[in-house]
């Protein structure tokens, strides 16, 4: 699908996947799973190391004794929020996600730490914005799959060109229809047709991530991005620039 498939393959090395404890895992296939789990043991003690009270979230932040420790910026988002990933990190229950997000923010929101020393405030600040980013990323299916693909070493270069003619024609046709639409009901029709495609593509991505078929998940992610573009254009109608 991409001309730069080779490039994507070449950067898919354990070194670029980084983040936490790659030495724990030997098999390439299980590496990603280990990465999701690695965070728990390495960075999130279930008991506060200072006062031994049980911690309310996976974050190393204790509301009892005001112990707080910096988490690395590349900490896996699922682990940060304490969301169960099971075997499929794409399958996220958004209500569960929100609950975990609110819990995490309660623990590390800068307001909670405003009476603490500057260093602790800074750590809380950093953690809070990291959690916001993690939540926003995991909440949106497109951003979620892009994040997971990035973890797997698939990063779309801005110089990549789309070779999937069928998708290009489909996207161009729909965009032109929105452009030419005479009234809201025409746009709504395009929008609902597109919504079905988005739903199907998200389901397909979930399946592919479950199968660890990253190559095809990558292609489906591109399709989702274009479908999202159609949705946004339909949403913005008749706000046309020219």
């Amino acid at each position: 699908m991409f001309r730069s498939a080779l490039r994507a393959a070449s950067i898919r090395t354990p070194a670029s996947r980084v983040p936490l404890v790659p030495t724990l895992c030997s098999a390439q296939r299980t590496l990603s799973l280990c990465l999701y789990r690695g965070f728990v043991s390495a960075y999130s003690p279930s008991k506060c190391p200072q006062c031994s009270a049980p911690l309310p979230t996976p974050l190393p932040a204790c509301p009892k004794c005001q112990y707080i420790e910096r988490v690395p910026s590349n900490a896996p988002y699922h682990e940060l929020l304490g969301v169960e990933t099971g075997f499929n990190p794409f399958a996220v229950d958004t209500r569960d996600l929100k609950r975990h997000f609110l819990q995490a923010q309660k623990v590390c929101h800068p307001d909670t730490w405003s009476r603490q020393p500057k260093e602790k405030q800074d750590v809380a600040d950093h953690m809070s914005s990291l959690i916001n980013e993690a939540y926003k990323t995991l909440l949106d299916p497109l951003r979620r799959i892009q994040y997971l693909l990035q973890q797997e070493g698939y990063e779309i270069s801005e110089y990549d060109q789309l070779d999937d003619m069928e998708l290009l024609v489909e996207v161009m046709d729909e965009r032109e229809l929105i452009d030419k639409a005479a009234n809201q009901s025409e746009v709504d029709e395009i929008k609902s047709r597109n919504q079905e495609k988005i739903k199907a593509t998200v389901a397909e991505i979930e399946q592919l991530v479950g199968d660890r078929d990253w190559e095809r998940a990558n292609q489906a992610a591109v399709r989702l991005k274009y479908l999202q573009g159609i949705h946004d254009a339909a949403q913005a109608w008749p706000n046309i620039d020219w």
């Binding site: 779309i156 060109q161 789309l162 290009l168 996207v171 991005k225």
Partner: peptide
């Protein structure tokens, strides 16, 4: 000619 850039979603 029909081309697209997947990174930014342009057609």
């Amino acid at each position: 000619g029909l081309v697209g850039a997947p990174a930014c979603g342009d057609v």
